[in-house]
């Protein structure tokens, strides 16, 4: 049987995917104030996942990440639209944004913003869409 010789790909993937996933989290958290955001964070994450798919194959990754990426899309959309709906509860214009400073143990004083929640929704949507599209094309015989 044909056995691919991909030792280099697999070794570097474990390192690169790790860096990519960490950077994606940074981008997501930095998003609402500085360069970054849910969109690019989602793209970087899906790049890491796709890289792992390429190195380890469909079956292995499907076992490690037992997530149907197609359902990630509506979950993300629901979170993003849900943050907009909060404005109906507080009686402010749709998609209004607010933030506050909180003292959290270990991290100290940090800023939390509602735009962050919206970004998480965007992040999940982009992740789901990108991986669904690429896997569909890859599976197409």
């Amino acid at each position: 049987m044909y056995k691919p010789n991909d030792l280099i790909l697999r070794t570097t993937t474990s390192l690169i995917a790790f860096i990519l996933l960490g950077f994606a989290v940074y981008l997501l958290l930095a998003g609402h104030n500085s360069p970054g955001g849910g969109f690019v964070g989602g793209l970087v994450t899906s790049a890491a996942v796709i890289l792992m798919y390429m190195a380890y194959g469909m079956e292995t990754i499907a076992k490690i990440i037992p997530v149907n990426f197609r359902t990630v899309i509506p979950v993300g959309l629901l979170i993003a639209v849900g943050t907009g709906l909060g404005s109906f509860v507080f009686d402010v214009p749709f998609l209004s944004h607010t933030f506050g400073y909180f003292n959290v143990p270990i991290f100290g004083k940090i800023e939390l913003a509602t735009a962050m929640l919206f970004d998480i929704g965007v992040y999940l949507t982009v992740l789901g869409v990108t991986i669904t599209i690429i896997l569909n094309i890859a599976n197409d015989q």
């Binding site: 359902t71 899309i73 509506p74 959309l77 629901l78 639209v81 709906l85």
Partner: peptide, 10 residues
Amino acid sequence: PLIAGILLAF
């Protein structure tokens, strides 16, 4: 309709 569309995707 946007929320309805998202719910129906599930």
